[in-house]
Design a protein around this nucleic acid. Structure first.
Length: 371
DNA sequence: AAGCCGTGGGT
DNA sequence: TACCCAAGGCT
């Protein structure tokens, strides 16, 4: 077996691979610019928030729409929150939209509309934790700071052949230390002579994890740093990292009523500002956390003061922590009377509804099942 | 500090 | 199919 090359040569090998084979993504704008101006900080901020726990393929269209609507931090900070949430529809983890909005306001108020360039300042902004702060500082500003996300942790565990898991804080601490060592060696070696910066090393590590060093079936034969990798040398790439312990999903029953008025409007209501799908809109939904089965027709008719109701569809919707059983009911020719009104309930056209913030199941209910 | 927060790609 | 888990952060 050939000896592994010194780890000090890894940053150069990796960044060279990255600069020649990186995917073209809308937030990677100036790959030919100097290393500390390669990315626009605002585009980096928005993309990093959208990319938290979310795959690249899910983000691209949302990112483009979002930047068309809010091209600058000032335009974002000045927008109504409802519009921001609407543009986030379908992305999931909707709290991120609210936090990004709060961050934009703080950037206008405390930083003169400029995205901060230090980890310390970035960490004070809502929605920005250790990973995102380091990502903005290094990717957008070329600062020599480490970052560790799920990808980079996996890559580092495998390179070093460490029997580790993302769930163990000690393993993650170790990964941050390793990432810092790599960044320091790259900064000292002044990889930047060729216009390559520490940001490129960080992004290269992520790109490798996302495209080559994937969780299951890594493509080791395409890997530019295969010769550095202990997991590959010992054929343990499939065992590293160890799987997280499985989560148990709670069941939730949602009974949703589709009510269409004679003038072709649908009844909608606003969800509370906490919990799942916070602040999103939905067709009136009875959600009983203690129920083990759908509500009875009688209870629903009484609840909304609408009858008769007919059952038109059932489906389940999975989230990370829940299995949501939807039962969809249709109200026969309701008239928009005060009986159905409440502070959070109103009638709206399909066109209006299509512009609102909706969860994916409610989008299906209100815009597809209602046809 | 463990649970919570969405959705769909990949296998 | 069912299950893992993704450019995490907040409470």
């Amino acid at each position: 077996m050939p000896a592994r090359p010194p780890l000090s040569s890894l940053p150069r090998t990796l960044t060279r691979w990255f600069l020649t084979s990186a995917r073209e993504l809308p937030w990677r704008t100036n790959l030919n610019a100097p290393a500390d101006h390669r990315r626009d900080p605002y585009r980096t901020l928005v993309s990093e928030l959208m990319l938290q726990q979310t795959q690249v393929s899910r983000v691209i269209d949302k990112f483009n729409d979002f930047l068309t609507a809010f091209p600058t931090p000032a335009s974002l900070a000045a927008a109504p929150e409802s519009r921001i949430l609407a543009l986030w529809s379908g992305l999931g983890y909707y709290r991120r939209a609210k936090l990004l909005y709060a961050a934009a306001k703080a950037i206008l108020r405390d930083h003169d509309g400029r995205i901060p360039d230090t980890v310390e300042e970035l960490l004070t902004l809502p929605g920005i934790g250790p990973y995102t702060a380091g990502a903005i500082a290094s990717l957008a500003y070329g600062k020599p700071v480490p970052i560790v996300d799920g990808n980079i942790a996996r890559v580092l565990f495998r390179i070093h052949g460490r029997d580790a898991t993302h769930a163990d804080p000690r393993d993650m601490k170790w990964a941050w230390d390793q990432a810092a060592q790599l960044v320091n060696s790259a900064a000292h070696a002044k990889v930047a002579v060729g216009g390559v910066g520490v940001g490129d090393l960080n992004e290269a590590l992520m790109e490798l994890g996302a495209t080559i060093c994937t969780p299951t079936s890594p493509r080791c034969n395409c890997c530019p740093i295969r010769s550095h990798c202990i997991a590959n040398a010992t054929a343990r790439q499939h065992q590293i990292p160890r799987p997280k312990r499985p989560i148990t999903r709670r069941e939730l029953f949602c009974d949703t009523v589709l009510a269409r008025s004679p003038d072709d409007k649908l009844l909608i209501e606003h969800r509370p500002s906490t919990g799942m799908w916070a602040n999103l809109w939905q067709a009136p939904t009875l959600e009983d956390p203690t129920a083990a089965k759908p509500a009875t027709r009688c209870r629903l008719e009484h609840w909304l003061n609408l009858k008769p109701l007919t059952l038109i569809e059932r489906f389940t919707h999975q989230t990370t922590h829940r299995t949501v059983h939807f039962t969809i009911w249709k109200a026969a020719r309701p008239t928009p009377t005060s009986a159905h009104q409440s502070p959070t309930r109103q009638w709206a056209t399909r066109e209006q509804i299509s512009e609102l913030a909706l969860s994916n199941p409610q989008r299906r209910i209100l815009l597809e099942l209602s046809r």
